[in-house]
C-alpha cells in the first residue's frame, strides 16, 4: 500500500523518536491509530448503490454527523445544498458522482467478473472531448480540456480518478491551479 502524506509524516516522526525515547510510546500509539483507520478503506462493490454507504464503507461513517438522509437522493439532490464552498466537485471521488447520476459500475466497467481500468474510449461515449473543450473554454489561466501538446486527445484518466483523488496533471510543469473534479 502506498504511504499517504500523513503516514509519511508519522513514519518520519517515528524515525526521529528513536533518538527521543520518551516520545516513542506516544508516537507508537499515534501510528497504530492511523494504521487501524487505514485498514477500513472502502471496498469496491460492483453492486454498490448510492444510498447504501455501508455496502462499501462498512461500519465506518461515510457521511458527517447530522447529514441529511440521502436515501433516494441523486446528484441533483446533493447539489441543492452543495453549492459554493460546499461543492462536491474535486472532493467526492468521481465514482460517487457517477453513481449518484445514475451511472452504475457496470455501465463503464461492463458486465465482467474482474473489473479493470476503464479506457478513455469508454469515457468519450458520454463525454465528447470537443464539447468539453467548449464547456471549459473560459477557465483561467488555460482551458484544461485542450492544449498545444495533446489537443483534445489527452487521456481523461490523466487527471480524473473515479476511485481516488483526482490529479492536476498540467501542474507537473505549469502553474495552473485547476480544481479537478
Amino acid at each position: 500500500m502506498k504511504m499517504t502524506e500523513k503516514d509519511k509524516r508519522v513514519f518520519e516522526t517515528a524515525q526521529q523518536a528513536r533518538i527521543h525515547t520518551p516520545l516513542c510510546l506516544l508516537v507508537l500509539i499515534l501510528t497504530l491509530g492511523i494504521a487501524m483507520t487505514s485498514v477500513a478503506a472502502p471496498k469496491k462493490m460492483a453492486t454498490s448503490q448510492p444510498e447504501n454507504c455501508a455496502l462499501c464503507h462498512g461500519k465506518e461513517k461515510a457521511l458527517p454527523a447530522g447529514h441529511n438522509d440521502i436515501k433516494k437522493m441523486n446528484y441533483e439532490g446533493c447539489k441543492k445544498c452543495h453549492i459554493d464552498t460546499l461543492r462536491l466537485g474535486g472532493k467526492l471521488p468521481g465514482g460517487h458522482i457517477h453513481q449518484l447520476s445514475g451511472v452504475s459500475c457496470e455501465k463503464c466497467h461492463g458486465k465482467v467478473k474482474k473489473q479493470t481500468e476503464v479506457p478513455m474510449k469508454q469515457c468519450v461515449t458520454c463525454h465528447n472531448p470537443e464539447k468539453l473543450k467548449e464547456k471549459t473554454a473560459k477557465v483561467k489561466p488555460e482551458n484544461p480540456h485542450t492544449s498545444p501538446h495533446y489537443g483534445t486527445g489527452l487521456d481523461c484518466n490523466a487527471c480524473h480518478r473515479q476511485h481516488g483523488k483526482s490529479e492536476n496533471f498540467c501542474a507537473q510543469c505549469h502553474k495552473f491551479n485547476f480544481v479537478v473534479p
Partner: peptide
Amino acid sequence: MFVHGGNSII
C-alpha cells in the same frame, strides 16, 4: 509515462 511524447511534446 502516462502519455506519449516525452520531452519532445513539450
